[in-house]
């Protein structure tokens, strides 16, 4: 799993830098387009992901003491945050698409939509992983001694969070 996490970080890293350097050729365009974004929605999404990561930490600490059920409950809380993130993100995207914006509109929107969608798919995958872990935890499949599955799922979710922590200021704030 760590191998995948590194590969993912590598891909996102390359895209972040591509954004930053593509911007140097086109500062005005990037700044102007950035102002059209819904920054509030971005910040709420940040809070949601950070919090969900925190709940996952709580879930891991519960299973370390062998509390399967409460581990599962925290995971469900985390996934609820994740779901809220997805809903918000979808409404953000649909707003843009209704405004006639797509990946070919300009380079900024190419990155905004492309990277956003790519990250979106990672949240979806993270939810699937957490879902599977939750199910197993609920059925008592993990114990204080043996819960590598929870830790692995958690690591993936934190990676998704980490990527967003860089993505949000980069695309929504810095100008």
């Amino acid at each position: 799993m760590w191998f995948f996490i590194l590969a993912e970080l590598l891909v996102f890293g390359i895209f972040f830098l591509a954004y930053a350097f593509a911007r140097t050729h086109n500062v005005e365009l990037f700044n102007a387009s950035q102002l059209e974004l819904d920054r509030a929605s971005g910040v709420i999404n940040t809070v949601l992901l950070i919090s969900s990561s925190y709940f996952v930490v709580l879930a891991v600490s519960r299973i370390r003491r062998g509390h399967s059920r409460s581990c599962a409950s925290w995971l469900i809380t985390a996934m609820t945050c994740g779901a809220a993130f997805l809903v918000l993100k979808l409404s953000e995207f649909s707003g843009k698409i209704e405004a006639g914006i797509n990946m070919s509109t300009n380079t900024f929107y190419m990155f905004y939509l492309g990277l956003g969608f790519f990250h979106f798919m990672h949240v979806v995958l993270g939810m699937i992983i957490l879902g599977a872990v939750t199910l197993k935890a609920w059925r008592g499949g993990y114990s204080a001694a043996d819960h590598a599955g929870v830790e692995t799922g958690a690591a993936y979710w934190h990676m998704v969070d980490l990527v967003w922590i860089v993505l949000f200021p980069l695309i929504y704030i810095l100008n």
Binding site: A7, I14, F15, M110, G114
Partner: peptide
């Protein structure tokens, strides 16, 4: 094809050697 493929094609295919 749309121009953005120059980005996406480049980055992902650059990882194909892995």
């Amino acid at each position: 094809a749309p121009e953005y493929w120059q980005w996406w094609g480049s980055v992902f295919s650059a990882l194909e050697p892995i």
